[in-house]
Design a binder for these strands. Structure first.
Length: 450
DNA sequence: ATCGGCTCGCGCAA
DNA sequence: TGCGCGAAGCCGAT
């Protein structure tokens, strides 16, 4: 494996023997996972058992039953796969920095490997954990194709500044995965039985009012199946109709990618192997690679990725110039949440999200821009949009979500446009555009109030 | 239907 | 220092 995928977070005077532990967090799959492959490589070279541990945090950024259910069902499938590979697994409940040190001590682990995540809370967990850690710790970017810190050492201005950097590095990093091997050194401790999802869910103090969805299957196998369906009947006209919110021409892969049930690199490799039309393939890879890795870059290098202080200077200036503008409509977060605005298109988009856990990508822009237009301030608008996105979307709490909302409300990765009320020079969108391009009334009917 | 202007700043060429 | 150009748009002119 390319050693540039690994960062040494801690180099302690380590024990020479003891199991290698992979703290799985962002990349919840067994195959196609560079962090797990690295951990296995380390364990094999020192002839040690390999243990995968997942820390279940009972109140993660207000996640609901919808996200916990999707995640845990996928995780159980991953655990079963690990078992077949003779790799031990543990599900711990609690804050990572509190439960992991004791767990590692009890196991007498020699090395901790974890996956990379640019989000604030994950970095706080890691910082606190490192302070208490007495063994080596390695971090592997198992989510991006080009490791985030290699792709760029700084905050990128827009897609066009990151794109050439990625292009140059893809030949090095977009390589085939080796298979996960059956691990030759078993853990001496007795294997724990596979936890029951319902039991684990019942033990969590989470919001159950946002229910699970049943329109897409959960887990790594289902993700690969969906990918191959998309290659068969979606990719060849991708970009032609994929912006139309009435046609289901999106790949539907984002929930799997978000929870790491599917690897972006595997997706890219399969898309290239499919060898479809050049333009459509490029359009899809642009979203999968450039846009996704740009969102990681944004969250990694901008500590204010979820509030207006993270907007570019021109955008902060122009929005503040228009803070006093009259709002023709002004809604609270609760009114937005209930989908009771005056705009049937906006309400339909909101209901699509509440009902299905996945708003159409094109509608997400319109949805967020209208929240800006109908909120008391950009700060309030950011809060509302992030609250709703994280609460209802299956792919909430993802850098893509934060970057997308910041693009819509704060001109992040965008440029200035004609000045107007409230928006200032932030790119404007209205329903006329939607009506011009799509038969948007049918979208409203599909997601009409019950 | 199509087209240019709107407007900012990065990155590269010179 | 100048210049080209950029995720998804809008608007008015032709």
């Amino acid at each position: 494996m390319n050693p540039r995928r690994v960062r040494i977070l801690k180099s302690a005077v380590s024990a020479l023997s003891g199991p290698v532990v992979y703290w799985m967090s962002r990349d919840q799959r067994a195959e196609d996972n560079w962090a797990l492959l690295h951990a296995q490589q380390q364990a094999v070279s020192t002839k040690q058992p390999l243990v995968v541990v997942f820390c279940l945090v009972p109140d993660f950024l207000q996640a609901t039953l919808r996200q916990y259910g999707f995640m845990l069902r996928g995780l159980m499938e991953t655990f079963a796969e690990l078992e077949r590979k003779n790799i031990a697994y543990r599900l711990l409940v609690g804050q990572p920095e509190e439960v992991l040190p004791g767990f590692l001590a009890q196991l007498q682990a020699s090395l901790l490997v974890t996956d990379f995540d640019p989000l604030r809370i994950k970095r706080q967990w890691k910082a606190k954990l490192l302070a208490r850690l007495t063994i080596d710790c390695h971090e592997v970017d198992a989510h991006n194709i080009v490791p985030c810190w290699i792709a760029s050492p700084k905050l990128e201005f827009a897609a066009y500044t990151l794109r050439p950097k990625l292009k140059k590095l893809l030949p090095e990093f977009l390589e085939q995965f080796p298979p996960l091997e059956r691990h030759p050194y078993p853990l001496a401790q007795v294997a724990t039985p596979l936890p029951e999802v319902e039991t684990v869910l019942a033990g969590l103090n989470i919001d159950r009012s946002v229910g699970e969805v049943d329109w897409l299957q959960v887990g790594a196998q289902a993700a690969l199946l969906r990918l191959h369906q998309f290659l068969q009947d979606g990719l060849d006209d991708y970009g032609v109709n994929s912006n139309d919110p009435l046609l289901d021409r999106q790949s539907q892969l984002s929930p799997y990618l978000h929870f790491g049930q599917l690897s972006a690199q595997r997706t890219a490799l399969e898309v290239l192997r499919h060898d479809g039309p050049v333009q459509q393939t490029e359009a899809f890879l642009e979203e999968l690679i450039v846009r996704r890795e740009l969102a990681d870059n944004f969250c990694c290098y901008n500590p204010d990725y979820d509030n207006p202080a993270g907007f570019p200077a021109w955008a902060q200036q122009t929005l503040s110039d228009h803070l006093g503008d009259l709002r023709s409509y002004s809604y609270t977060a609760a009114e937005f949440e209930q989908a009771t605005t005056h705009d049937p298109i906006w309400n339909a988009a909101q209901r699509q999200m509440v009902k299905t856990g996945k708003m159409h990508g094109y509608m997400r822009m319109y949805w967020a821009k209208k929240i800006l237009e109908w909120s008391a301030s950009p700060r309030q608008a950011m809060q509302t949009a992030i609250y709703l996105n994280d609460r209802y979307e299956l792919d909430g709490r993802d850098p893509n979500g934060y970057a997308g909302i910041a693009w819509s409300i704060g001109g992040v990765h965008d440029r200035a446009w004609s000045e107007r009320q409230i928006f200032g020079k932030i790119r404007y969108m209205n329903d006329k555009g939607l009506r011009r391009k799509f038969t948007i009334d049918r979208y409203c009917e599909r997601f009409a109030a019950e």
